[in-house]
Design a protein around this nucleic acid. Structure first.
Lengths: 110, 110
DNA sequence: CCTATTAATCGTAATATTGCAATAGAATAA
DNA sequence: TTATTCTATTGCAATATTACGATTAATAGG
């Protein structure tokens, strides 16, 4: 099938999965890390920095943009991409809540 | 192609992506949340709790186990699954480092 | 032994993802 | 206008993922 049964899960579970999925590819991790490192951020730079073809990078950027994690600003023929910090923070809160479930005991139950 | 070019990325980027990918499906998110909620943790319960077939749950558990995030303990005909807290903490550190890149300014560059 | 119970594995169909060549679009420069 | 530059889109092949029916272990109970 290859089709996720989203309807049987909570909205929170689906949202966590959607954000996690976008981080589930090293190219998108690399893009985000690079955008954080250099605050100014032209698109062509990413193609040089990461070793993937321009259409491939463009596709990854599209996904990141669709989730609101980055913004793109047209400047002449180039496009300046950067992190949408507000949305990034909101996403981070959600992921932290999920990752931080392990407060109680140190020992495992089995 | 459908084949990720892992060789052009750093080990850290690949590791982040691998962990993120496992959270990229709501069923696995749900499994982990349930394992955190009830400390004791039989496998059949997960099949009832989540509305997916037994082979499907078993497959998701296998992936979580492969990454070391959960442990399985045979008890008679049942298997008791639980979070591997040590590995969970290590994974969390890595993810936090990635998610917490946004310390500097509040304003976006574009 | 046989049977029931539980979980893992196999096989397979449906769908999704990745990557890129080719092309199209959009703005600038000459 | 025409050429150039940069990015987005299209189309497609290769591979991966998801889901589950059927089957196979593995253990427990009679």
């Amino acid at each position: 099938m290859g089709l996720t049964k989203t309807e049987i899960f909570t909205e929170e579970q689906n949202t966590i999965a959607i954000f996690a999925k976008v981080f589930g590819h090293p190219a998108r991790v690399a893009i985000l890390q690079h955008l954080f490192k250099i605050e100014s951020c032209f698109c062509g730079d990413l193609v040089d920095e990461i070793g993937l073809a321009q259409p491939t990078i463009s596709q990854h950027l599209k996904e990141l943009k669709y989730l609101g994690l980055i913004k793109g600003n047209v400047e002449g023929t180039s496009v300046c991409y950067c992190i949408d910090k507000k949305n990034w923070t909101a996403m981070k809160e959600l992921m932290l809540e999920f990752l931080d479930q392990d407060i109680p005991s140190d020992q495992d139950c089995c």
